[in-house]
Write a protein that binds this DNA or RNA. Structure first.
Length: 707
RNA sequence: CGGGGCGUAGCUCAGCUUGGCUAGAGCGCUUGGUUCGGGACCAAGAGGUCGCAGGUUCAAAUCCUGUCGCCCCGACCA
């Protein structure tokens, strides 16, 4: 405990003047080296990062790029003051951007140095002195791979349903992800802030979301009985903030973001860390005086997100998602294809089209509609008794027909504001109505309540399209349902269905005339994308979402600016979220192997694991030296100093998935070598002891994705 | 919220049907010893209000009722 205390107290800002002041704002006392000047970062060799330092600053052969936050183990006082500022990866990650990082990229958050960058540079970590509770047993309550691995590797521990402790390894990985997000957000001129997690319910009532969110909101009352909520997202709060601080178009555009805990009282937390009740989210909000400006920022952040996911080593496919009031391509989700995912996306074979299931369009024949060529109008409607068979499956079994021969008829009701009329939607028996598509076609609707529908003459469970003959409801038909020549469908009579249903004969002409024929169903495997290529459905994890909000919140909360003609205008907004925990889950789900985690280098809690076969004698000396050299070069390195048998260390090492493992044993040392085992490689390779640290630094640089 | 399942040691589980002696195993942990390149072995130990409350009974981990918690399927999920 004393160690923790002294660690905390070691954080103290130092005063640095000059242009690099922002970059150095959070340097801790302990950088004792004196002198001012400039030079080239030895760890970005070739990237040309210059370093500038003045007065009391850090060691001069490391560049100041990218959010340094050195930490020193107080257990190793001899090493304090000798650490570099940035890992090689941090610098290399910035390589493509420019020769010299923009001052923005160096910016920091004075309020929260702990959340700034990943901040693990220069630290010598020993396995025996941290907390890595690995386990051989698969936890009983974990049924997806990522969850099992996170618990077995000691990344997290469940405290309550959907609520987790983050242990050192997991938290380090989280901080790495957050560091990448901070760097990329800085590159698109987004500034970090921190809003409260406890919010007054009043603001949420003003936008109506207090009710829209319903039981998903964690609600509480303070001692004065004021209703509060735990924030599930922050549109209201950030809008209120900007409303108070921004009044002129000259202050726009503006992008703010935070990385913060969110709370949602999920009906059913599940899938380990995928759907949880308390989670970290990076949420960004942009503010504009024109739709064009919003479009530019949306584009910039979209591409920042592409870089973030790439640097994190996870696949993320941008897919079209339900767009808001702006319309067009106003919303994209970033989905990692993966069996454990909860979202469904449709992708075309040729890669030209990707959308979530809600949005995925398909090609329909240009001539779909009435009249229907080749329709058999001679067949007689047959009424058949189907007692109790109210579902598609029951009817199919009962009548021995395939669902492809059936018409599924669903009754929707329009919103009160829209007159509250009924809409009858017909799809083929094996298809599902896509409510989002239906809404885009006929306005706001929802599935009718049984009681209301029955009162209006709909025999729920036995409805057929011809119900519109006597109810006069609006009829919408999917082309595939229309294409069935003689169909089986409901008889509009309890416990009866009909066969030989035919759209021409059994639908009165006036209703035929008014019927809309349109794509109103979910796409299925094999459907043609709007570009003509075959679609495939796959599951995926939603990692991020970018969204053009428009003026929904600014209008509700009165956030306006004065334009150049002295006119008051609502601020145009966008919002952009990423779930870092989901990035981690996606990485674990898609990259792990039978032995455990395989971290991508960008988000690995450590880059190098040093495993002396026995931590004594020459192996110990070599291990300690390498440990110090790597740490001095900004490499994140963990030394397995435990008095354990090699097998245990290897198994644990594989399980926690550090990308590079250096094994130091008598075998290699006899020939002046150590063993390098890449986590992704089947076999180890031997490396000479000479310039070992430099070799590893170079290797790590090569392993990082270029963006 | 509907359906199903589970709460016994830090972890994974047995015991419950058919109530009964001091509640068990493996892993992990502690101590000593022997080992030491893929989760060692020997010996001795520590550790459990059997989720909680009430009831039935001479007697409850076991049967009954209630309650809390957790997991899975579904509904739901800016």
């Amino acid at each position: 405990m004393a160690g923790i205390e002294s660690k905390k107290s070691a954080y103290r800002p130092v005063t640095i003047s000059g242009p690099q002041r922002r970059a150095h704002r959070h340097f801790r006392a302990g950088h004792r080296e004196q002198g001012a000047g400039s030079g080239v970062c030895t760890h970005c060799a070739g990237t040309g990062h210059s370093i500038v330092f003045s007065g009391r600053t850090h060691r001069k052969d490391f560049c100041a790029a990218l959010l340094p936050l050195p930490r020193f183990s107080t257990r190793q006082p001899a090493t304090v003051g000798s650490r570099g500022c940035c890992g090689p990866g941090a610098c290399v990650g910035n390589r493509a951007q420019a020769d010299v990082p923009s001052p923005r990229a160096l910016a920091g958050s004075p309020q929260n140095p702990y959340k700034h960058g990943h901040g693990f540079n220069g630290e010598r970590m020993y396995w025996s002195r941290t907390l890595i509770p690995t386990s051989r047993e698969v936890p009983a309550d974990a049924d997806i791979l990522s969850h099992q691995l996170m618990v077995r590797a000691g990344l997290v521990r469940r405290l309550s349903a959907g609520i987790y402790d983050w242990l050192p390894l997991g938290w380090r990985a989280m901080q790495k992800i957050c560091g990448i997000m901070r760097q990329e957000m800085a590159r698109v001129d987004a500034e970090e802030i921190q809003m409260p997690a406890i919010l007054p319910a009043e603001l949420w009532k003003q936008t109506g979301r207090y009710f829209d969110y319903g039981p998903l909101l964690f609600k509480l009352k303070d001692r004065k009985d004021t209703e509060m909520i735990l924030g599930p997202t922050h549109e209201e709060i950030v809008t209120e903030l900007v409303k108070a601080c921004v009044s002129s178009h000259k202050q726009l555009p503006l992008t703010l973001y935070q990385i913060q805990q969110k709370f949602r009282d999920e009906a059913r937390p599940r899938s380990g860390l995928l759907r949880v009740r308390e989670f970290i989210m990076k949420d960004a909000y942009s503010f504009h005086s024109s739709v064009e400006s919003l479009g530019k920022t949306y584009h910039d952040i979209f591409h920042a997100y592409v870089r973030i996911f790439k640097r994190c080593g996870v696949t993320a496919i941008p897919v079209e998602a339900e767009s808001g009031p702006i319309g067009g391509d106003a919303s994209h989700e970033f989905i990692c294809p993966c069996a454990a995912g909860e979202d469904l996306i449709a992708r075309s074979e040729d890669g030209s089209y990707a959308a979530n299931l809600e949005m995925a369009d398909r090609q329909i024949p240009a001539d779909a509609g009435f009249p229907i060529p080749g329709a058999d109008v001679s067949a007689q409607l047959q009424r058949v008794h189907t007692p109790g068979a109210a579902t598609m499956e029951q009817v199919c079994t009962f009548l021995h027909v395939a669902p492809q021969q059936m018409i599924k008829t669903l009754v929707f009701v329009k919103s009160e504001a829209d007159g509250g009329g009924f809409v009858v939607a017909c799809v083929r028996g094996d298809h599902e109505v896509n409510e989002a598509k239906l809404r885009r076609l006929v306005g706001p609707v929802q599935l009718a309540e049984d009681a209301a529908a029955r009162t209006a003459g709909f025999v729920i469970g036995f409805v057929g399209p011809h119900v519109v003959n006597h109810t006069g409801a609006q009829l919408v038909i999917d082309p595939d349902a229309l294409a069935i020549v003689t169909a089986v469908t409901g008889a509009n009579e309890k416990d009866y269905h009909v066969t030989n249903f035919n759209w021409i004969t059994h639908l009165e002409a006036q209703h035929r005339g008014k019927a809309q024929v349109a794509d109103i169903r979910n796409v299925v495997d094999g459907d043609k994308s709007p570009h003509g290529s075959a679609l495939t459905l796959e599951k995926g994890i939603e990692l991020g979402h970018v969204f053009k909000l428009g003026t929904k919140y600014s209008q509700a909360l009165g956030a306006v600016y004065l334009d150049d003609k002295q006119q008051s205008q609502p601020i145009i907004m966008g919002c952009y979220g990423i779930g870092p925990g989901r990035i981690m889950v996606a990485a674990l789900e898609t990259l792990s192997d039978k032995d455990g985690i395989v971290w991508p280098i960008g988000i690995a809690p450590f880059e190098v694991l040093i495993t002396p076969i026995r931590y004594e004698g020459q192996a110990r000396t070599v291990a300690d030296e390498l440990h110090a050299q790597l740490a001095d070069r900004g490499v994140e390195v963990l030394l397995d100093d435990r008095d354990q048998r090699p097998g245990v260390k290897f198994k644990d090492g594989d399980l926690i998935g550090i990308p590079l493992r250096i094994v130091i044993g008598d075998k290699g040392l006899a020939t002046g070598q150590v063993e390098l085992k890449r986590r992704t490689a089947a076999a180890p390779e031997m490396l000479p002891l000479e310039n070992l640290a430099e070799q590893l630094v170079a290797l790590i640089g090569q392993m990082r994705p270029r963006v």
